[in-house]
């Protein structure tokens, strides 16, 4: 059974499709990149899988069951810029938030949870910053705290939204190391990514997305000049709209 499987998902915003008829089956234990131009719907795709944006149509399953039944085995790293880093809290606290789902309602994190959160911080080389106010961390350190939080979720499938954006070289290395570790434990990781230069180095599989799925498969087969042209070239979007009966000039 596939870790992630989607069937014809469409998400629309003000009647305009943001992603359209995207179907794919993600294989287990792979690092999977999702690439495409700005506005291609990359973040929207993972948000729709996680139920964060409403779908116009389509089905999603995580290991054969709906997402709502599989929350405990799914980890999520939102874009770093999506939260307010001036929030009054420290790094360890943010990592502990990853465990709130497992801890459940009406209960507080205990010593064991805190110990585990510290270990997650250590895995990204941030244990020395556990009590540091989050606003005093650099961008790269903040990103590593987010990754440690995802580790604390102890999931089987991870979704990461642009983890490499705006990070220093040390953090980039730490993220790659972490992805490799996750893969060696049989976890599946889907990463929204926009740096085409590094796709071949980082990812086993890749999805090329521009509102529609252009291609999906092992990187060496799919990450071709031809497919990139289809994804990034302006012409295709134009023809596509015409074939839908929408005149872009109207």
């Amino acid at each position: 059974m596939n870790p992630v499987s989607t069937n014809n998902i469409t998400v629309a915003y003000h009647r305009k499709p943001v992603i359209q008829n995207v179907s794919f089956e993600a294989p287990e234990g792979k690092l999977i990149g999702i690439v495409g131009p700005n506005g291609a719907g990359k973040s929207t795709l993972i948000k729709s899988i996680l139920g964060l944006v409403p779908k116009a149509s389509g089905n999603i399953s995580i290991y054969g069951k709906p997402y709502k039944k599989q929350r405990q085995i799914v980890g999520y790293v939102p874009q770093r810029g999506s939260v307010d880093w001036d929030f009054p809290t420290n790094a360890l606290d943010v990592v502990l938030m990853g465990k709130y789902g497992q801890i459940g309602l009406f209960r507080r994190p205990n010593k064991k949870d805190k110990q585990e959160a510290l270990e997650c911080l250590a895995q990204v080389g941030m244990e020395a910053f556990a009590n540091r106010q989050i606003s005093q961390l650099s961008g790269g350190q903040q990103q590593r705290v987010f990754l440690a939080r995802a580790l604390a979720q102890n999931a089987s499938v991870y979704f990461m939204d642009e983890p490499f954006v705006g990070v220093d070289a040390a953090t980039e290395k730490a993220i790659i190391q972490l992805l490799t570790d996750l893969k060696s434990k049989g976890k599946t990781v889907l990463v929204v990514h926009h740096d085409l230069q590094t796709v071949k180095d980082y990812f086993d599989w890749v999805m090329l997305l521009n509102i529609r799925k252009i291609a999906f498969g092992p990187t060496e087969d799919v990450f071709t000049q031809d497919n990139l042209q289809k994804t990034y070239g302006g012409r295709l979007a134009f023809l596509d709209q015409e074939s839908n009966g929408v005149n872009p000039l109207a």
Binding site: K47, L50, G51, L52, K68, R71, V74, Y76, P78, S82, V83, D84, F87, T89, V94, M97, G98, Y100, G101, R149, Q153
Partner: peptide, 12 residues
Amino acid sequence: SFDPHLAAALGI
């Protein structure tokens, strides 16, 4: 309050 997206994803 801090991260509504993760909160929603966790089922809060």
